[in-house]
Structures are given as C-alpha cells and as structure tokens.
Computed example of a mutant assay.
Amino acid sequence: MYDPSVLDPAVDFLADLAAGGRIAEFAIGTGRVALPLAARGLEVAGIEFSAPMIDELRRKDGGADLEIVIGDMATTRLPGEFAVVFLAYNAITCLLTQEAQLRCFENAAAHLAPGERWSWRSSSRHYAGSSPARPTSPSTSRTTTSASTSSTP
C-alpha cells in the first residue's frame, strides 16, 4: 500500500474528487495518504484512535501541519465541513460491528458540505455481519455523494 503504483492513483483520485476543497481522512494513521495530499496544497485533517500513530505522523515532513483529532472514527467530529471524507484501504475493518460501521458512515456524511462526497476502499472479503459463506466482493470501492449533511435515524 506504500508502493507508488498503488498509492499514487489513490492520491490522484482523492485530489481530483476534492477539487481544491478540504479533505478529511478517518483513521489517518501515519499519514500514508494524507501527507501526499497535503503536499499538493490541499487542506487535510484527520481522525485517529492511536496516539502512537499520530506521534509517528507528526515526525514526518508536513505532519505537524495537519489538523488531527484523537478519537473513534465512528463518533469523533472534526471542526468544519469537507469536500471529501475518506477511509483508505482496510480502515473500515477496524470497526468490528455493523453498528459501528454504520455510525462511521453516518459520521462521514455529517462531515460533508452539502452535495460533496465520501469514499472508502477495502480489499477485505469480510465485514462485520458477513461470513465465509456470504463474503463481500474481493475488492470493494465505494464513492457516495451526500445530498445533505443531515442524517436520518
């Protein structure tokens, strides 16, 4: 996932999707995707549960400039609205129940400016609620356009 042949197309896709707007990464980790986006001049913020991951991110060039909030991506809020909210690679599998995954999707929608987008990608075959008998597709990628920032219960 650090290989430029994998990372560069993902960064290109997200930068194009943002069209110059603010970007939020849920599970920002050590900045593998966020730092290349910020290096392109985009404003990037993130949520991360692990303080040691944030410490590692802060040691990298440009890492100290990113707005990062420590917390759970299913419930933690970043200030403001974003053109794009994303989860990279298998980050969604860090949430172990369908309920937590749904809260994460709702949280992503709540961060978006009206009409903007969120994206997630995973190569995992199993999500909460799936089973070996009923796996999800081997490579799942979703981009969703939000019609509003409100969510319905």
Rank of each mutant, 00 (worst) to 15 (best):
N107C: 02
L66G: 04
M73L: 11
G21M: 10
A113Y: 03
E116T: 14
V44I: 06
S139C: 05
S131R: 14
V84A: 09
S131Y: 00
P36F: 07
P52N: 14
R125G: 10
A38H: 08
Q101I: 13
R77Q: 15
S131L: 00
A100Q: 12
A74K: 02
S131G: 11
F49S: 13
S131W: 03
T136N: 13
G62N: 07
C104L: 09
G115S: 10
F86W: 04
S123E: 07
S137Q: 13
G41N: 04
L35H: 01
I54F: 05
A83E: 09
A133S: 04
L95S: 05
S119H: 11
F105V: 12
G29R: 03
L112Y: 02
E106L: 12
A88K: 08
A83L: 07
D72C: 06
G129N: 01
R103W: 00
E43T: 14
W118A: 09
D55W: 01
A109I: 15
P79H: 12
G46F: 00
W120D: 02
R125V: 01
S141N: 08
T76F: 01
P138K: 14
E81A: 15
G46A: 05
G129H: 08
A100T: 06
A91S: 13
A113Q: 13
G46Y: 01
P52A: 13
P52S: 07
A39Q: 05
R59Q: 11
F49A: 14
R117K: 15
W118E: 08
I28P: 08
M53Y: 09
M73N: 08
E67M: 08
A39F: 01
Y89I: 05
E99V: 09
R103K: 14
V33H: 10
V33A: 11
E81H: 12
A91C: 02
L66A: 05
R58F: 07
R40M: 04
E116Y: 07
T30S: 06
R59V: 04
L112S: 06
P135C: 07
T30N: 12
A34D: 15
R32M: 02
R59S: 10
A88M: 08
L95P: 05
